[in-house]
Every structure is written in C-alpha cells, then in structure tokens.
C-alpha cells in the first residue's frame, strides 16, 4: 500500500516537474534572431532587389538593357580593372603583412603585452578609414607631409622625386594597407592560436627542417584561414569609397567613385547606370567568392565536415 502511494507521488512530482519547464515554443526559439532577419530584409534583400530592378530601368522607369551595355565603355571597364587591381594588391600585401605580424605575436616569443597591444591597435586601425585616414596620410606622406619633409630634410631623401606619389595607385594602396593588415591580424590570430606545438615538434622529430615544416604542415593547415582572410580583405577594399574619394578626389577612378558620381553627381547623373555598375560589383564579388570556394574546398578536404 505504502509502495503504491510512493509511486503515485512520484508520478505526480514528475508531472509537476514537466509543467514548470519553460515552454519550448516556436516564438521563444526564434525571437533572438528576429532583428537579424529584419535587418537583412530591409537593408540587404530589399535594396538588392531594388538595385537589380532599377539597373534594368531608364530614367523614365521603362525596361532597358542600355545601362548594362554602357558598362562596356573603356572608362568604366578601366575603373573596374583598377578597383580589382587595388583590392587584389592590398589584400595580398595586407594579408601577407598581417599574417607575418600575427605569426610573430602568436608563435614568436615576444614579451607579454606586445600581443595584446598589437591586437588592440588592430581592432582600432582596421576600422580607421574614410576621411580621417585620408587626412592622416596627407599629413604624413603628402607632398608637404611630416614624414616626407623629415625624409627630405634629415635624410636627404626626396620620395616624390623618386617617383612616389600619395595620390597614385601606389599611394592609395599604401593607405588601404593601413586598414587591411590589422584586419588580417584580427582574423588570422585565432587560427594561429589553434596550431599545436606538438605538430612542430613531431615534424622536427621526424627530421623535417623548418622550411619543410612550413611547406608541408603549417601553411597547408592555415591555408583555409589565410584564403578566408584574404577574400575578406579583397571585399573590404573593393567596397571602400570614402578613403579613396577624400584622398584622390576622383583622381583614381575606382568603381565605387564611379557609382557615387552617377547617383549623386551633378554632371554625370545617371542612376540607372549607377545601379548597373553596382550590380557589376556584385558579380565581381561573386566570381571572387566562387574562386575562393574552389580553392578552399581543395585546401580543406582534411577538415572535419
């Protein structure tokens, strides 16, 4: 009898316990990510749809392919080309520099504090772009900039006479690299932290030289992360506008500057073409993503799926 009572109590307790648990409802599961979906809908999906539809419209709102045919003018093609070149160059330079610095602060034996110092700097510098960055470079590397003058007066090196010009492809690349390499440091450091000391020791133990360890073990393991970092850098540079505009003032016709002048310009105002230019940028990025995907698939076939 007492056993039976015990059993009933247990069952009742179990039922009670179930009831006090929060309801696993659809709403509570999804509410946390709702702002994300709202933001993407309003600021990615809808603008993209509008961008693509308007790229096929003329100023009066009629359907046309004119905007896309206009993309093949030499001026526009050359600005795509210069944007791609500068993005590629700064992704490569920034990526390499960032990787080496991240390698130094993770694998290298630097005193405490250097690592956190560089990481803090990277967090700030990777977001330092636009007008302030352009001004900083004008003030230092411009024709009468501090560094330029210092080099000239103290070391008798006139970099402008030697062919350097801040308002050129090289100068702009240098400026972009300033925010590119810190971004690379930020994205590649976790991957470097994930390297096991034992891999290096095992390689040494098996007779591998430092070079062989780098070629056969370290680089293949890091390659997916390096590629990922570089594609991010490419996109970062490809979409940059304010830095280039305020530095060169349209001297170098990046594709973003072309888009800007078509949409808000007083002289060249042709929003339809502007939209088509933007769609062209999306296509360039898509092609880059496909390359990235293929390379990455090749380099990470050993990763846990």
């Amino acid at each position: 009898m007492s056993n039976k009572n015990q059993l009933t109590t247990n069952t009742k307790m179990k039922r009670d316990a179930l009831e006090v648990r929060p309801k696993n409802s659809f709403l509570s599961n999804w509410i946390g990510v709702t702002p994300f979906f709202i933001f993407t809908l309003f600021f990615i999906v809808l603008p993209s749809v509008s961008l693509v539809t308007r790229a096929f419209q003329d100023n009066a709102g009629n359907f046309t392919l004119r905007n896309f045919l206009d993309l093949f003018s030499p001026a526009i093609l050359s600005s795509y080309w210069v944007s791609i070149r500068i993005s590629f160059a700064t992704a490569l330079a920034g990526g390499l520099l960032g990787f080496l610095m991240a390698y130094a602060i993770t694998v290298g034996k630097l005193p405490d504090g250097v690592r956190s110092g560089i990481l803090t700097f990277s967090g700030v510098a990777s977001n330092f772009a636009g007008v302030p960055l352009a001004f900083a470079f004008v003030a230092t590397m411009g024709r009468t900039g501090m560094v330029t003058v210092l080099l000239k007066n103290v070391f008798h090196i006139n970099i402008y006479n030697m062919g350097f010009n801040l308002y050129s492809f090289l100068g702009l690349s240098l400026t972009y690299t300033f925010f590119q390499f810190p971004l690379m440091i930020l994205v590649i450091t976790p991957a470097l932290d994930g390297l096991k000391k034992e891999w290096k020791e095992a390689a040494e133990n098996l007779g591998a030289s430092q070079g062989m360890y780098l070629r056969k073990v370290l680089l293949p393991i890091l390659m997916p992360s390096i590629l990922g970092g570089m594609i991010l850098l490419f996109g970062n540079s490809f979409g940059a506008y304010a830095t280039a505009y305020s530095l060169t003032g349209g001297f170098i016709n990046l594709i973003t500057i072309m888009v800007g002048s078509q949409i808000k310009g007083d002289v060249l105002y042709n929003p339809g073409l502007g939209y088509a230019l933007a769609v062209g940028m999306v296509i360039v990025m898509l092609i880059m993503m496909i390359f990235y995907y293929l390379l990455r698939r090749r380099s990470e076939r050993w990763l846990r799926k």
């Binding site: 096991k196 095992a202 133990n205 591998a208 056969k216």
Partner: peptide, 17 residues
C-alpha cells in the same frame, strides 16, 4: 631532427592535413 629518435605524444600530434 638529427637525433634519429622517434617520439609519440600524449595528444597524438598527427598532421591533420
């Protein structure tokens, strides 16, 4: 690398790639 001594680690340390 010049010792010709084999080593087995606690964490296996196989090259994942």
């Amino acid at each position: 690398r010049q010792r010709n001594i084999g080593m087995v680690f606690q964490s296996y340390a196989l090259f994942p790639n």
